[in-house]
């Protein structure tokens, strides 16, 4: 068999080519082109669809309600009739003639107090029910019955107990919001993995340390679910409660407007209520994502 030898050449040093590296000017993208335009496109992609939909709805509404004999006001009619309410939420023209912003703030204050109590007591009771089998057996049936009672059904009882409309409204908020917080917290506490309990046992964490360092963070996603349902329910309940108790809140404003046939004002109040409810929900949801960061991921 013939093997073909590969002819190798002895290496001859090749003179190194010398050259200079030319630094070409890199065109720096302008701030507008690099950041502003993509950001604007992003915002537009999110904002344009809802704006178009709202516009369409307003047009349909306008067409439906501009017929003669329409029972509800059309958007243009609302604009002219309730102009002062729309453009300035914070005017004060008299004891019962104030901007909707003030009324919403009054309602929010009641919600804040009632909801605050509900959050604290709900988390504590939920922890008790979640942690202790006997507390659960004793309290859970009571909770399950009480939570089905409509918030407004509590109003006469609380009016009789407190003999004043302000604490009664706050109590109604409390009793509305507290159940989902209790129940979700209890579920969260019951779902704490045995592993975490073992770690706490080996470290000999005392009850308070266990509560603060293991229970609350571990149950946080559940607790925040309860808190979010709770804030939604409170905002639903305050409007109804204020209709009955009177005062300055947004609920009473609607009732008052209905009694004096100011339908346009009611529509504006509804927009306020919806907007505030949406913002409240977003705030609690935002808090939840900040607090439970890393908790659910395992």
């Amino acid at each position: 068999m013939n093997m073909q030898a590969v002819k190798t050449q002895s290496a001859v040093p090749v003179p190194l080519a010398t050259g200079e590296v030319l630094r070409l000017p890199t065109p720096k993208p302008s701030f507008v082109r690099a950041k502003l335009i993509p950001a604007a496109k992003d915002v537009a992609a999110k904002l344009i669809p809802p704006i178009v939909m709202i516009g369409l709805l307003l047009i349909v509404w306008q067409i439906l309600c501009s017929k003669p004999g329409a029972t509800l006001p059309s958007p243009t009619k609302i604009w002219t009739e309730a102009y002062d309410l729309i453009v300035d939420p914070f005017f004060i023209a008299g004891p019962q003639d104030i901007g909707l912003g003030w009324r919403v703030l009054t309602s929010l204050q009641r919600v804040a107090i009632g909801y605050g109590f509900a959050a604290v007591i709900g988390i504590l009771l939920g922890t008790l029910v979640g942690q202790s089998v006997w507390a659960m057996r004793g309290l859970d049936p009571i909770f399950q019955i009480l939570r089905t009672i409509s918030p407004l059904a509590w109003l006469p009882i609380s009016l009789a107990a407190f003999r004043d409309s302000q604490p009664s409204a706050i109590f109604v908020i409390f009793i509305t919001a507290v159940w989902p917080i209790i129940i979700n917290t209890a579920v969260g506490i019951r779902n704490i993995p045995q592993d975490y309990r073992n770690v706490a046992a080996v470290l000999r964490l005392n009850h308070l340390e266990f509560f603060v360092k293991v229970m609350i963070p571990s149950a946080a996603p559940y607790i925040f679910t309860g808190l979010r349902i709770g804030i939604g329910l409170s905002w639903l309940a305050i409007v109804a409660a204020e209709m009955l108790t009177g005062g300055v809140g947004i609920g009473f404003f609607i009732w008052d407007a209905w009694n004096s046939s100011r339908l346009s004002d009611i529509v504006i109040a509804l927009v306020y209520i919806g907007g505030v409810g949406f913002v409240l929900d977003r705030i609690v949801a935002g808090l939840a994502t900040i607090v439970t960061r890393g908790t659910s991921a395992n």
């Binding site: 993995p193 592993d195 975490y196 073992n198 770690v199 046992a201 080996v202 470290l203 000999r204 360092k213 293991v214 963070p217 571990s218 946080a220 439970t292 960061r293 890393g294 908790t295 659910s296 991921a297 395992n298």
Partner: peptide
């Protein structure tokens, strides 16, 4: 007869607190 740090455990599934 009770858990304590003198008998530290390395658990099978690490059991680190994820938060």
């Amino acid at each position: 007869n009770e858990p304590g740090p003198d008998r530290a455990v390395v658990f099978q599934n690490h059991s680190l607190l994820p938060w």
